[in-house]
Design a protein around this nucleic acid. Structure first.
Lengths: 185, 185
DNA sequence: GTCTATATCAAGATAGAC
DNA sequence: GTCTATCTTGATATAGAC
């Protein structure tokens, strides 16, 4: 069943956002799906394989987002807000999966580490593209400024999603206001 | 030996920054210190006890920082930069221990979760104090603005420390530039 | 493709000697 | 205060039946 494989992947991604890659087990997955551990091992022989598949799903999600944004009639600012909204929306009760992998980074197998770096760079580039378009319309800025702005926006969002856990939900909306200040000034 | 206890605590804090609370084991600690697991269990009967002790150490570190800042002759901007520099300096090869606990949050025992929330709130207040002083000197701003600025600076720094792992070391300096923009505008 | 059963290993934890 | 030895549990992983 190709469907089951996707189902496992979806759940794994959700649990990684909630508990992290190191903390999730085949037992967690199997119980929540009502199948046995062995069944999951059939689809993803080793945990590493599951981890790699998850990063590929993340990459895919970002590519879909990029396509959607590029084919839309949104203004550049709307695109940026859409990008940010997606990050928040996807996270649900958890944090961004990239943050999750970053926290577990030294415990990850090499292959997963490489994949996470790839996804992370791709995500940065998606944001840089959006911001570059924005700055071409208005004030022309040095490309380094756009890059550092992209770094900052990503750091802010991901950091805020984590602070939500210890400081409460309103962290995000407040941080969004400050991001808007950065973009407009 | 009271010294051994501190030694364990120091190492635990370091390893939590590098690998996270869930990922570290009494085996890691004992091997690196050249003692047995049982010896560590003597000082911290359960892993939970070690986790709590680590959060108390974090709280202590923040209190020391606050004292140092309040008793110094630094300008407010220098205080802020000192605050940020400390966060970075402490992290070493890892991320901020608060971020680390936030990532592991749902896997933590209740007591540790509470402690982490306390430390997190205290850290926020230290930063708010610094910023409030700053804004009293210059433009008077609404207190909510100071709070949201504090949220944002914390999120930025912690997020950037994590992105360092996937995007490289220069993330931090670039983010710092943007934080300066936020403070001055 | 999913199951039962089992092997293997590491982790948290405890008992008791020194 | 540190040690050896041991228990228990949970996790990754594999073999083989259905």
């Amino acid at each position: 069943m190709e469907n089951r494989k996707t189902q496992i992947l979806d759940l794994a991604l959700k649990l990684i956002r909630e508990k992290g890659y190191v903390a999730i087990s085949y037992d967690d997955l199997s119980k929540q799906l009502g199948v046995t551990k062995a069944s999951i091992h059939y689809h993803f022989e080793k945990k590493e394989d599951l981890g790699v598949a998850v990063t590929e799903r993340m990459q895919q999600n970002l590519e879909n987002l990029l396509l959607f944004i590029n084919n839309s009639t949104m203004t550049v600012e709307e695109k940026l807000m859409h990008f940010i909204a997606r990050q928040i929306e996807i996270s649900g009760e958890g944090i961004c999966p990239i943050s999750s992998f970053q926290s577990d980074f030294v415990s990850l197998p090499d292959i997963i580490r490489q994949k996470v770096q790839e996804v992370s760079k791709f995500e940065l580039n998606v944001l840089i593209n959006i911001l570059t378009e924005r700055y071409n319309e208005d004030i022309v800025q040095k490309s380094e400024d756009v890059e550092s702005l992209a770094y900052t926006i990503l750091s802010c969002i991901k950091g805020a999603l984590q602070y939500k856990r210890t400081l409460g939900k309103d962290v995000l909306s407040q941080v969004l206001n400050q991001i808007n200040r950065l973009i407009r000034s």
